[in-house]
Amino acid sequence: MRITIGLGVSLALGLVFSMPAAAQEAPVAGKVAEGSLKGKTLTFVSYGGVYQDGQLKALEDFVTASGVNLLSDGPTEQAKIQAQVEAGNVMWDVVDTGDLMPFVHCGKLFQKLDFSKIDISKIPPGQVGECSVPAMNYAVVLMYKKSTYGDNPPTSWADFFDTKKFPGTRAIPGYGDAEGYMIELALLNDGVEKDKLFPADIDRALNKYRGMRDDLILWQTGSQSQQMMESGETDMAIVWSGRGKAAVANGAEYEPVWKDWVVVKDQLTIPLGTKNLDGAYALINAYLGQKAQEIMTETTSYSPINIDAKPKVDELTTKWLTSTPEKLAQAYNYNISYWVDHNTELNEKWASFIAGN
């Protein structure tokens, strides 16, 4: 996908135009020097669909104010980033990635960030990495088709793994970048106690999935997972919350299970060797602004990462936000640091599994 955003009229909910860069002593989230990137081109990369559409919407006033020509590409793939970096021909300037990638490859595939060029003061504590800032917060959540289960729906991950009590197809992530929470969920529902989860037995977890392979459908992109729900192709699905909400909004007869929903956040990164480093910093700083985050949430249902953001959303979107006290009380935080340290083993074994082995 490659989209050019035109330099249209600034939206009322846009960025606050700042003074020229020379007069600006420190970055302020959401502000950009007017005309500062005129004649420049940046490429923003993400995972497509409703999420990337919302991100682009949030950046429209950055485009108008800065004068930049913004291209949109995707989906994010580590192999493509690595190929660009190793070839010394980096075409992507800001890339939205999953949780682990920038931690595993910080300083190798991704630029170590200069925080004198990004205002991170409005980001919740503990969410900023050496090579990344959060793009948003969201959930990985279990969805089920209401017509399949009627008055006896699944209410937990245990039910997802119980194919006898809850027969039916299950759609799960099947893309190449392995997710540690998939291993943790399988182990916790294969008799492993939470306090004995680590060191994690990856083979045991994958064998749990292999034992139900006849019931599994793998999705490779967020848009594919959404389409599976909208078409009624699967009885249960492990999906990103934004995709679940979008499917329901489009008429899909599915319901989420919020017990032990998995806390996840996408990351904003700069590939090492970008030719537009200052522009990349400016884009990220604009994206972190209050109003940009409100727009992002209003168009995607993903939770904002600016603590001042107060998105105006409808009842359905409110249901899908993960930032409420009620949702946070049911959240499951997976062990990111462990999976950073064991990323190579996890990716190798996951690749074998999704290949059918």
Rank of each mutant, 00 (worst) to 15 (best):
P173T: 03
G174D: 01
Y175I: 00
G176P: 01
D177K: 01
A178Y: 02
A178Q: 06
E179R: 12
Y181I: 01
Y181A: 03
Y181C: 03
M182V: 06
E184Y: 02
A186E: 04
L187Q: 05
L187V: 10
L187T: 09
L188S: 08
L188P: 10
L188M: 15
G191C: 01
V192Q: 00
K194L: 07
K196P: 00
K196Y: 02
K196M: 02
L197D: 10
F198A: 02
F198R: 08
A200W: 05
D201C: 04
D201H: 04
D201Q: 04
I202V: 15
D203W: 00
R204L: 13
R204V: 02
A205V: 03
A205E: 05
L206W: 01
L206N: 10
K208N: 07
M212Q: 14
D214T: 13
D215G: 07
D215H: 15
D215A: 15
I217Q: 11
L218F: 14
L218I: 03
W219E: 07
T221F: 12
G222C: 03
S223N: 14
G232R: 10
E233F: 14
D235P: 09
M236F: 03
A237M: 12
I238H: 10
V239H: 03
V239D: 05
G242Q: 09
G242I: 03
G242N: 15
R243K: 09
A246C: 06
A246F: 02
A247V: 11
